[in-house]
């Protein structure tokens, strides 16, 4: 089945265990939201799936369309089709956005494929128009001196250009004012469709006013404690995270 499937995943940083028997499946074509308070393991999940070397996977499985990604290098996981939009994207001084994305596109070419610069720029400008990004943007160094909104838009542009099968958006709404939030949400809504599964990691419900999820999962202490439809986000908003804590305690009993 075409899905990003995580089964009983246990992840730690150093001695500290962060994810505890975490399980989740995001089918291709769906948008799932993963919510929960700070420090509950949402970003750890994102980085562990992307193959960050600081995170140790102790047990469990992570499958991309049935293929295990846990022993792969970060770049191999990326080329297999998993994209991570970073909460805090890194600066790459002196490397323009156009050249960075170009390098990423070229990294995906097979041995017999030729890179055609004209097609690349045509596609880049098309995606930028769709995302309402000014063309002068491409010559700026990646994330250097960017505002919060610009950084997130740059992430969405990369998502658009690299055509992954699954995308994890880690707190893409954090630090954005309402206008920037709308722009980013517009981008995600433009890209979603039957060939892309999206996992939205968010702390707040407000992003879900603009990107309507198929499912909402609530996370506490390294695992999912409640799943439901889009209305679950509203319930969570109304009842607060103390309610989640109660749910977690109840589940454990």
């Amino acid at each position: 089945m075409s899905q990003l499937e995580i089964k009983n995943l246990n992840v730690s940083i150093g001695e500290k265990s962060i994810l505890n028997d975490f399980s989740l499946a995001v089918p291709k074509g769906e948008v799932h939201a993963l919510m929960g308070p700070n420090g509950t393991g949402k970003s750890t999940l994102a980085k562990a799936l992307a193959g960050h070397p600081d995170y140790t996977v102790n047990s469990g499985e992570a499958l991309l369309d049935g293929q295990s990604i846990l022993d792969l290098e970060p770049d191999e996981i990326s080329r297999l089709g998993l994209f991570l939009a970073f909460q805090y994207p890194n600066e790459i001084p002196g490397v323009s956005i156009a050249n960075f994305i170009r390098a990423a596109v070229q990294a995906r070419l097979g041995e017999d494929d030729d890179f055609v610069a004209t097609e690349y720029y045509k596609n880049l400008y098309q995606q930028m128009d769709l995302l309402k990004i000014d063309r002068t943007f491409t010559s700026r160094s990646v994330n250097e001196g960017f505002s919060g909104g610009e950084k997130k838009r740059c992430e969405i542009l990369q998502l658009a250009m690299l055509n992954p099968s699954y995308a994890i958006l880690d707190e893409t709404d954090s630090g954005l004012d309402i206008d920037a939030l709308k722009v980013v949400a517009h981008g995600v809504n433009t890209l979603k469709g039957e060939n892309l599964g999206i996992l939205l990691i968010t702390h707040y419900q407000r992003l879900l006013d603009y990107i309507i999820p198929d499912k909402v999962h609530v996370m506490w202490d390294g695992r999912i404690v409640k799943s439901g439809g889009k209305e679950l986000a509203l319930e969570l908003e109304a009842k607060g995270y103390d309610w989640v804590k109660e749910l977690a305690t109840a589940n454990a009993c």
Binding site: H52, P53, P74, D75, L84, I92, F100, A104, L162
Partner: peptide
């Protein structure tokens, strides 16, 4: 790591 996540070795 950021660059590797985009597919670069």
């Amino acid at each position: 790591f950021y660059m590797q996540q985009r597919g670069l070795t």
